Amino acid sequence: MLKVYWAADDSLPSGDRGLAYGDGLFETIRVSRGQAPLVMHHLERLVHDAMRLGIRLARPEIESVFASALERYGALYGDADWILKLVVTRGTGGRGYRPAAAVTPSLFLFHASLPVLPPASGVSVDFSRIPLTVNPLLAGIKSLNRLEQVMAASEIKEPIFELLMSNADGHVVEGTRTNIFLHTPNGWVTPPAKSLAVSGVMRRQVIERLHTVGEPLRESDVEMADLLGSHCQGLYLTNSVLGVVPVRNLAGHDLPAGNQLATICDPHKRPD
């Protein structure tokens, strides 16, 4: 069983391990016209990655709470798109880092209006000075431990929309809040899942769609030179709130920008 806390409850338990140690994970789900196109991917990842952390969740229970959240908050937004955030923690119990033997997980639900989306013509992006370190045991998990991304995101200044982060080997891995896809003459390239701090739900959607339509795709390390060189035919940012965002300028260098990937893959793209 879960302990469920709604946004209006104002009852965050002071001993919760998510608050004390970042002992948990979260999902940020975009709701469009009363539907969440990627919700099955979100809930599947939430349950799977919680298990990787030793937090047991029952998928039917999560689905039931999600349905209740749509009903509870949907009327506030009408036909407008909005955001539902699910935060799961191990719960309350145990002194210090070691959790108690029997701990009941907590689920916190928050809602917000959809942020202003970037222009379809593309955005300006730069490289972060903050290195990204990925523990292999935690690779891809959208855990509550996001301090590197917080520090990197604090460097973002207008007109820069996003900063790309590199690992200790100098490979460009992801943005502060996005995954990346590079279009080359030989097809699409995205950094391998094992190198990612967050393996996004939208990243999964894009990979599945590219395979479905027969577009060549490989998961491979990406260098700065790959992004700034002549073989770059387009660079795209993805996440489940923004969808697919083309990059038109990277570190002062103009890049080819189009909507090809969004046309193929973006579940939130509305007809013109």
Rank of each mutant, 00 (worst) to 15 (best):
M1N: 01
K3W: 02
V4A: 03
V4K: 06
Y5I: 12
A7M: 15
D9N: 05
R17L: 10
L19K: 00
A20V: 10
D23T: 01
D23M: 05
R30G: 13
S32G: 01
Q35P: 00
A36G: 03
P37Y: 07
V39K: 08
H41A: 15
L46H: 11
D49N: 13
M51K: 14
R52V: 10
G54Y: 11
I55K: 11
R56H: 10
R56Y: 11
A58C: 04
A58R: 08
A58Y: 05
I62G: 09
F66E: 02
Y77A: 01
K85R: 13
L86M: 15
R95P: 04
F110N: 00
H111W: 08
S113I: 00
P115L: 08
P115Q: 06
P118V: 05
A120R: 07
S128V: 09
V134H: 09
P136T: 06
L138D: 03
L144Q: 12
S154Y: 08
E158C: 03
F161L: 02
M165K: 13
S166A: 15
S166I: 05
D169I: 00
V172S: 06
L182W: 11
L182K: 11
H183R: 15
T184K: 04
N186I: 02
W188F: 14
T190Q: 03
A193F: 10
K194H: 14
G200A: 11
R204N: 04
V206G: 08
L210R: 02
L227W: 06
C232L: 00
T238L: 01
S240I: 03
G243D: 09
R248W: 03
N249C: 12
A251M: 05
H253D: 09
H253M: 15
L255H: 00
P256M: 12
A262F: 08
D266G: 02
P267V: 08
K269L: 15
D272E: 13
